[in-house]
Amino acid sequence: MRRLYLSATLIFWVLVTAFWAGSLWLPPAEKIAAIAVDKLISPTELAKHTAPENCWVSIRGNVYDLSTYLPEHPSRPDILLPWCGKEATEAYNTKTKGRPHSSYADELLVKYRIGILASEKP
């Protein structure tokens, strides 16, 4: 048991250090991977994507296709599903409990960005 504890602890810290070091030396492709999707998406178009397998959400002026992310979200699906097809900035900023999402979540969100929410014409 003692040997198991010592080796597991050592391997854990070695791998954590490796992940940290890996994040410092990013491959060039990742550095320039800033997604520049400028497609304008209207609120009407947004409102059509309300199904779990076709879920678009607008947050802070951008539109994200979260269809593939939904199963990975840590909380129950019924927390996120009602926001499919809607503007969800307030819900994202407060998690409906007054707590904001983390910078990790912001980073994760970038992967799913598909465009910019166009303002509705009067």
Binding site: F19, W20, G22, A33, S102, Y104, L108
Partner: peptide, 21 residues
């Protein structure tokens, strides 16, 4: 990790993720 090394580190780092982590 295969998609983003930065995201892999942010998965572990409490400074990126706040109170849950």
């Amino acid at each position: 990790w295969p998609n983003s090394r930065l995201l892999a580190w942010q998965t572990l780092s409490p400074f990126s993720q706040g109170w849950p982590i």
